Amino acid sequence: MRKLLTVCLGNHCRSPLAQVALTRRGGPAVTVRSAGLIGKWQDHPANPSMINAARRLGLDLTHHRGQQITRQDLDWADDLLAMDAAVLDTLHAIDDGRDAQKLGLYLPGRDVPDPVGQDESTFHDCAVVIEAGTALHIGPHRPKSG
């Protein structure tokens, strides 16, 4: 079974949406977790606007509770998928070169913009991009992360 970890800044919007979208696409062949670099949203539900955006795509984020990334998360995952370049840079620093081959952007060569502070349509657009990105990681033609 493949183990994926999606990571954003707070585990409040982007990485939780990626977790449920990848889980739906991958089914029993994958286990997906999400985490954030900061603990501000630890044990809190996902952002209400992202919950609504997820619902519009047939995804359920109502059970999500924020988690801050740990060394155990890094060790657990086969692939760590950062939502943007700043998150990826921080993951490289945290990882200290141990598992650099496991680290990559969720969208290779492109950030998933953080919708925090934006309107509902921005959250929806973000969710659509994340959901479409699942094909890059689960499916017959997925590239290796890195």
Results as ranks from 00 to 15, higher is better:
residue 16 P to E: 12
residue 75 D to Y: 02
residue 9 L to S: 05
residue 105 L to S: 03
residue 124 H to A: 07
residue 119 D to M: 11
residue 16 P to W: 07
residue 22 L to V: 05
residue 58 G to T: 05
residue 47 N to W: 01
residue 70 T to V: 04
residue 6 T to F: 00
residue 138 I to L: 06
residue 91 L to T: 07
residue 73 D to V: 15
residue 119 D to I: 12
residue 138 I to F: 01
residue 5 L to F: 01
residue 52 N to A: 15
residue 137 H to V: 05
residue 82 A to Q: 03
residue 141 H to L: 09
residue 32 V to M: 14
residue 141 H to P: 02
residue 83 M to G: 06
residue 111 D to E: 13
residue 98 R to F: 06
residue 94 I to S: 14
residue 22 L to N: 04
residue 96 D to K: 13
residue 6 T to Y: 00
residue 131 E to P: 00
residue 12 H to F: 08
residue 91 L to D: 06
residue 9 L to E: 05
residue 60 D to Y: 02
residue 45 P to G: 12
residue 55 R to V: 11
residue 119 D to L: 13
residue 61 L to F: 02
residue 51 I to Q: 14
residue 113 P to R: 13
residue 4 L to Q: 06
residue 136 L to A: 04
residue 96 D to R: 15
residue 67 Q to M: 14
residue 93 A to F: 05
residue 88 L to Q: 12
residue 140 P to Q: 08
residue 25 R to K: 15
residue 112 V to S: 01
residue 58 G to W: 01
residue 136 L to H: 01
residue 17 L to M: 08
residue 115 P to C: 10
residue 41 W to P: 00
residue 146 G to F: 08
residue 91 L to G: 04
residue 3 K to P: 00
residue 9 L to K: 04
residue 134 T to E: 14
residue 144 K to Q: 07
residue 118 Q to E: 14
residue 59 L to H: 06
residue 33 R to W: 06
residue 76 W to R: 06
residue 1 M to P: 05
residue 56 R to C: 10
residue 95 D to N: 09
residue 36 G to Y: 00
residue 75 D to M: 05
residue 35 A to D: 02
residue 57 L to Y: 04
residue 119 D to T: 14
residue 146 G to N: 13
residue 134 T to V: 09
residue 123 F to G: 04
residue 51 I to N: 06
residue 64 H to R: 06
residue 8 C to Q: 08
residue 47 N to S: 04
residue 69 I to C: 02
residue 42 Q to W: 06
residue 45 P to I: 12
residue 106 Y to G: 04
residue 104 G to M: 03
residue 35 A to Q: 02
residue 92 H to S: 07
residue 103 L to N: 05
residue 62 T to H: 09
residue 71 R to I: 15
residue 46 A to Q: 05
